[in-house]
């Protein structure tokens, strides 16, 4: 048996072992699950050393003798002082420093990712559209305007649901918040539908492996 064939059979056995839980909880599934967890953890440790610690810290520090990298080691070790009552203050120093750093950087991320969203939410309710010949296009104008009106209405309703500064006693506030809840439910439904599609894709991926590579049924 060649190495490729052995890998193929191990892959097929592992796939079937993991799917066996659909029938019922069983020892074969348990073994496969633990083997996968063990391999993933071991592989993760190896990758952290090979791709992160060795090229980014060990090599510059030990091989290239850039001694300033000792501070990274000290900062890293400060996290572990959390286990000592006497030295725990050191862990708080490094944690608060990193939290401050993260908070500062988050500002930039917020502006880069979300400010354009806020700007683009202010849509005109009436959009005049001209066709390629430069003439007024009534159908496209209606479609574009209706799209923007729906967008703004949905935005207001959903925001009304999350507006807690006053009690939703007013009919308008109550109605829009109620509508906002329904609109969010529709959104969550779409998200769940996409999740089902994604999970089915993973299943098809495994079927393709089993019935194309292992048992050549799919041509």
């Amino acid at each position: 048996m060649s190495w490729e064939t052995a890998v193929l059979w191990i892959g097929a056995f592992s796939t079937l072992a993991l799917y066996s839980v659909l029938y019922k909880e069983n020892p074969v599934y348990r073994v496969a699950e633990h083997v996968f967890l063990g391999i993933a953890t071991g592989y993760g440790l190896f990758v952290v050393w090979k791709d992160v610690l060795y090229p980014m810290w060990y090599k510059p520090f030990i091989v290239e003798r850039q001694w300033a990298w000792i501070f990274a080691l000290v900062a890293g070790l400060m996290y572990y002082t959390v286990y000592s009552k006497k030295l725990a203050w050191m862990s708080r120093v490094i944690m608060t420093t990193m939290m401050g750093l993260a908070a500062g950087l988050a500002f930039r991320e917020f502006f880069g990712a979300w400010v354009p969203q806020i700007g683009k939410s202010f849509k005109p309710l009436y959009v005049s559209v001209n066709n390629e010949a430069g003439q007024f296009d009534l159908a496209q104008t209606i479609i574009s305007s209706a799209t923007n009106i729906i967008f703004v209405a949905v935005l207001i309703c959903v925001m009304a649901y999350f507006f807690f500064s006053f009690e939703h006693k007013n009919r308008v506030a109550k109605g829009s918040a109620y509508m906002g809840r329904w609109l969010m439910m529709i959104c969550f439904g779409a998200m769940f539908g996409s999740t089902i599609m994604a999970r089915m894709s993973l299943f098809i991926g495994r079927l393709d492996f089993l019935f194309r590579d292992w048992i050549p049924l799919i041509k």
Binding site: A113, P116, Q117, G119, K120, C187, A190, M191, S194, T195, M197, A198, S201, I204
Partner: peptide, 26 residues
């Protein structure tokens, strides 16, 4: 992106931050 992530990405498409989107296997 994967199908699970796609619904969250549509606002970015609308705002012009994304120039195109492939949703999962579909």
């Amino acid at each position: 992106c994967t199908g699970v992530m796609a619904p969250e990405q549509y606002p970015f498409l609308d705002s012009g931050q994304l120039s195109g989107l492939l949703t999962g296997m579909k």
